[in-house]
Design a binder for these strands. Sequence first.
DNA 1: GGTCATTAATGACCATGGTCATATTTAAAT
DNA 2: ATTTAAATATGACCATGGTCATTAATGACC
Lengths: 203, 203
Amino acid sequence: MNNMSLREKKKIETKNRIFEVSGKLFKEKGFESTTIDEITKEAGIAKGTFFNYFPTKESLVFYFAEQKAELIYDLTEKEAVKHLHTKERMKKFLVALAESYEKDKDLTKLLFFEYRRYIENSRNAPDKERNPHYRLINVLLGLLQEGIEKREVKESIDTRMAAETLNAVYFHTLMMWLKSENELSFSRNISAKIDLLFEGIGD
Amino acid sequence: MNNMSLREKKKIETKNRIFEVSGKLFKEKGFESTTIDEITKEAGIAKGTFFNYFPTKESLVFYFAEQKAELIYDLTEKEAVKHLHTKERMKKFLVALAESYEKDKDLTKLLFFEYRRYIENSRNAPDKERNPHYRLINVLLGLLQEGIEKREVKESIDTRMAAETLNAVYFHTLMMWLKSENELSFSRNISAKIDLLFEGIGD
DNA sequence: GGTCATTAATGACCATGGTCATATTTAAAT
DNA sequence: ATTTAAATATGACCATGGTCATTAATGACC
């Protein structure tokens, strides 16, 4: 950090300024309503400079999302309470994740919807390592496999499919929460749904 | 249809022409890559005229989706095989729906992603009557409630939550299928997942 | 058949995301 | 200190979605 050339320092500084100004403006006026012109003006750079750092306006959101992605792995480490029942571990993990989202609904909304659009539109195969989505599935998969060993999860199930299902429910619940006006609790909702998934619907 | 003024006839004709040309071009080159200029040129109208019929480019997709929405209700009528087990009825219904999508993956892809974007961006409360999403949830809800009466579904469950969960899994599976390159079968996949949801994950 | 208010069609115009050839700044080599 | 090549910044420019004042077509009424 100190043996950097002036060039490198300025570069980092500029990227950070773009990032911070963008975040501020997005929160203030939303993603769509914030123009590149505003961002560059506020950041004190020319329009073209923006595109030297971020290939598109949307890629900014991708960058935002990446920062937050680390969270998922951190959480798995923290929630290494191996003695708990698989269902409870899963709950603890997903609820903790949910609570971290609940801290800033507006930012989460922005990240979720724009990030998903970005992923969907990108033609290249999604980078499975960096994509938070795949990370989550892998964590769930791990928990399920351990659960089978501990005889807390049906041996007969297809763990991949079960992980996908849990993931689907998680994201759907997140989406519903983001779209809801009322103060529906995301973490409580996801907790109840995990119960449902473990017990099953059938009588 | 015959006692229409020339005006009305021409209006309908123009709207249909826009609709057909759009559909053709979207299939050929995708939604994003098709420009309004191309559509209007191919339809033999001026650019402004397009916006007399559809407020935005995206609203075209909404119009497409509406046409297809009727399907869901039609299917519930057809699948009125009341004597089957609730799980089987649900499977039959969702699989039939899935199969109808499988007939034209490209169009489905277009409708699904763009329609969802449209819904997400529209600030006004979504029109719950016309929105296919809500229709599906309501059908599932009905099936679950009947299932409880027949003692084929756990009495203790929150039917609303269960319907949402089924819906979440259905849409997630649809999305995964749309994104998959390989010829993963959507209908078989959804069928397996309904089994999982009915039996539950826990041992 | 002519008049005129209403309705629809038009395309010049605007705003914004994104490109690129050119200009400027930096750091190394001499 | 000067030169030079590479890195970085710049803003005129382009394409496209969408607007709106103006123009043209229509049909009710005479």
